[in-house]
Simulated scan of single mutants.
Amino acid sequence: MSRSTTHDFYLGRGPDAERIGSIHLGACACQSVEQIWRARSADEFADLVNSFLHAAEVGQAGEVTHRGRPWPWPWPTSHGTDYTHAFDTDTVWTARQGQRWSMRAGEYVPPGPGDTPVVFPHGRDTCGYTGIYAADTTRRRYGPLLGETHRHDLSQLGLSILSDLTLPWSPGPASAQLVELRAQLPPHLRYAITAHETTVELEIEVFGLLDGDLAADAVVQALAMLPALYGWTDPNGDPPRFAVRVLLADDERHRTHPVLADRHTRAVLTTT
């Protein structure tokens, strides 16, 4: 099943690269960037990008931002964009959510010792998120699922996380990190998430484990990675987009979340 994706296009790579367009491509759009990958000069790349954006705009296949127009995204750099394409050194490079330049002319490039951190020009100085505290985020590292959840407030984010942890799995382009996370969570577990708006914290109670259970530490450690998947982490140690507190629920907690006494119920969400 297809999904909407965001794309940025640059001439060059690094902090001085020139952005020549962006698009939020609709989930049902029949557009493709494969032709752009075949560009062999900067002029050809720019022409192909312009044609691609124009065709998408005419066909109402996406929200287009042309060269010279203001930065379109609520995240401050292309680290939060699903796919970034840049023409550099006679070929087109592609980075997925700013993690590394993993494709060259449409072909996968394995990671290597020479890989360097991906740097993009700043599109804006602050983050324009809704419902979660805005912050100076120009130095932050963006999680792989940020593009899907950047408009969510804390309660919506909690529901999204519950769905990703408990619903039947449908592999997709953004699934690798979630597959890794879910592999560390026994399938019989159930969850109650409380969204604390004041402290911007998700309190996750895990049902199905007891203190001393051999899997408990691994589960707590896995769930502690959620802020890095659904938001950002800051190398300087500033607060994340949201905090997570993981508790192992005992049988007494069924009185607080009685619906979880039903073994068919996998998850509930409450707010404070």
Score class of each variant (00 low, 15 high):
M1Q: 15
S2F: 05
R3Y: 08
S4P: 06
T5D: 15
D8R: 09
D8C: 11
F9N: 00
R13P: 04
R13Y: 03
G14I: 06
P15V: 09
D16S: 11
G21N: 01
S22F: 00
L25Y: 00
A27I: 08
Q31K: 04
V33A: 02
V33L: 01
E34N: 03
R40A: 12
D43L: 08
D43Q: 10
E44C: 03
F45P: 00
L48G: 05
S51C: 11
F52R: 03
H54Q: 13
A55F: 04
A55G: 04
E57W: 10
G62D: 05
V64M: 12
V64R: 12
G68Y: 08
R69F: 06
P76S: 13
T77C: 05
D82Q: 15
T84D: 08
T84V: 11
T91C: 13
V92S: 11
W93S: 13
Q97K: 13
R100T: 06
S102E: 15
M103L: 14
M103S: 09
A105L: 01
A105T: 10
V109T: 03
P111Y: 02
P113S: 03
D115P: 00
T116Y: 00
P117L: 09
R124E: 06
T126D: 13
G128H: 11
G128K: 10
T130H: 08
L145S: 06
G147T: 15
G147F: 13
T149W: 10
H150T: 13
H150F: 12
L154R: 07
L154P: 12
Q156F: 04
S160V: 08
I161S: 06
P168N: 04
W169H: 14
P171A: 12
A174Q: 09
L178P: 02
A192L: 04
T199N: 02
V200N: 15
L202F: 07
L209R: 04
L210K: 14
D211E: 14
D211T: 12
D211R: 10
A218L: 03
V220A: 13
L223E: 03
A224K: 12
L226H: 02
P227H: 00
A228K: 00
Y230W: 07
G231Y: 05
G231H: 05
G231L: 05
W232P: 06
T233C: 05
T233P: 00
G237F: 02
P239G: 04
P240H: 03
V244H: 08
V244K: 06
R245K: 02
V246P: 01
L247S: 10
D251P: 05
R253A: 07
R255P: 01
H257Q: 08
V259F: 01
R263F: 04
R263P: 09
A267F: 04
T272W: 04
